[in-house]
Amino acid sequence: MDQQSGTNWTEERVIGILRELAKEEDLPKHLVAGPITGADTVETMGIDSLGAVWLTDRIEAEANIPLPDDFLEYDHSIATIAQRMNTLALDGGFK
C-alpha cells in the first residue's frame, strides 16, 4: 500500500480533495480558497447529496478501498471523515 492510500488520512488531506473538486466545479466555488476547518460538515460547506457523491467517489478512488454506502452524511465533519478513513484503511476497506 503506498503512502497516499494508507492510513495517513488527515484533515488537510480531505480539505485538499475538497479544494480539488471545487476547482473542477463539482463542489461550490467558495471552497476553492475560502477557509475550511476540521469542524466543517458536509452541510455547513454547502455540499448537497450530489456533491457528497462526488466527494465520496473521489475519496474512494484515492484510498483505493471500498467505502460503505453510509460513508458520508450531511452532519459528518472533515475530522470525522479523516478518522473514518483511517479506520477503514486499517481494516482494508468496507467488507
Binding site: 461550490p28 466555488k29 452541510e43 455547513t44 460547506m45 454547502g46 456533491g51 450531511y74
Partner: peptide
C-alpha cells in the same frame, strides 16, 4: 466576506438540500 458566502451556502443546503455553485 468569505464568511457570508459560507453562511448562505450552508443555509441553502440545510433548508433545500441544494448546492449553489457560485455565491
Amino acid at each position: 466576506s468569505d464568511e457570508q458566502a459560507r453562511k448562505v451556502a450552508a443555509e441553502v443546503t440545510r433548508e433545500l438540500g441544494l448546492q449553489v455553485d457560485v455565491i
